[in-house]
Amino acid sequence: MLINNYEQLEAFGLNLLFAGIFFLIGMSIKDVLKQGKVPPFGRFIVWLVLFLGCAGFIAKGLIQLFWEGSGLS
């Protein structure tokens, strides 16, 4: 395999790892909120913060993809 294939495989694996980590964080937060009997407004704030973190990570990936595609980096 060429070095480019290794880099693509590494990038894909890293993105998959981050997706798995976000999933596990979400599952643990769901469990803590359920056991702690958090009111609905508090749950909304917690999920909003978690979503914004994921959205920032996805936005970073898309910006990086567009910059690499246009030759800026």
Score class of each variant (00 low, 15 high):
1 M>V: 12
2 L>P: 05
3 I>M: 14
4 N>M: 07
4 N>W: 08
4 N>T: 11
4 N>P: 03
5 N>I: 01
5 N>Y: 01
6 Y>D: 06
6 Y>I: 11
6 Y>K: 04
7 E>A: 13
7 E>W: 04
7 E>S: 14
8 Q>G: 02
9 L>D: 08
10 E>Y: 01
11 A>W: 03
11 A>T: 06
11 A>N: 09
12 F>L: 13
12 F>K: 14
12 F>S: 14
12 F>N: 09
12 F>D: 12
13 G>L: 11
13 G>Y: 05
13 G>S: 13
14 L>Y: 13
15 N>L: 08
15 N>P: 01
16 L>W: 14
16 L>Q: 15
16 L>Y: 13
17 L>W: 05
17 L>G: 00
17 L>Y: 11
17 L>C: 12
18 F>K: 11
19 A>Y: 01
19 A>T: 10
19 A>H: 09
20 G>F: 06
21 I>R: 09
21 I>E: 05
21 I>W: 10
22 F>L: 14
22 F>Y: 09
22 F>V: 09
23 F>Q: 07
25 I>S: 07
25 I>W: 07
26 G>N: 01
26 G>F: 01
26 G>L: 04
26 G>D: 03
26 G>A: 02
26 G>Q: 06
27 M>D: 06
27 M>L: 14
27 M>W: 14
28 S>G: 15
28 S>F: 08
28 S>V: 06
29 I>H: 04
29 I>L: 13
29 I>Q: 03
31 D>S: 10
31 D>I: 00
31 D>H: 15
31 D>N: 13
31 D>M: 08
32 V>H: 11
33 L>V: 05
33 L>G: 00
34 K>Q: 13
34 K>L: 11
35 Q>H: 09
35 Q>F: 09
35 Q>Y: 04
35 Q>L: 08
35 Q>S: 09
35 Q>R: 05
36 G>Q: 06
36 G>P: 03
37 K>L: 06
39 P>K: 10
39 P>N: 11
40 P>I: 14
40 P>W: 10
40 P>L: 15
42 G>A: 15
43 R>G: 06
43 R>I: 12
43 R>D: 08
43 R>Q: 15
44 F>V: 14
44 F>A: 12
46 V>C: 04
47 W>E: 05
48 L>K: 07
48 L>W: 13
49 V>R: 08
50 L>Y: 01
50 L>P: 02
50 L>M: 14
51 F>C: 05
51 F>S: 01
51 F>R: 04
52 L>K: 06
52 L>F: 12
52 L>A: 11
52 L>T: 13
53 G>R: 08
54 C>F: 11
54 C>V: 11
55 A>T: 15
55 A>Q: 10
55 A>E: 08
56 G>Y: 11
56 G>C: 12
56 G>I: 12
58 I>L: 06
58 I>C: 10
58 I>K: 02
58 I>A: 14
59 A>H: 04
61 G>D: 07
61 G>A: 09
62 L>M: 12
63 I>Q: 08
63 I>N: 09
63 I>H: 11
63 I>M: 05
63 I>E: 00
64 Q>M: 04
65 L>W: 13
65 L>H: 15
65 L>E: 05
65 L>S: 13
66 F>V: 12
66 F>Q: 06
66 F>W: 14
67 W>S: 15
67 W>G: 12
68 E>Y: 02
69 G>H: 12
70 S>M: 10
71 G>R: 00
71 G>C: 03
71 G>F: 04
71 G>A: 01
72 L>S: 13
72 L>D: 04
72 L>P: 02
73 S>D: 08
73 S>I: 04
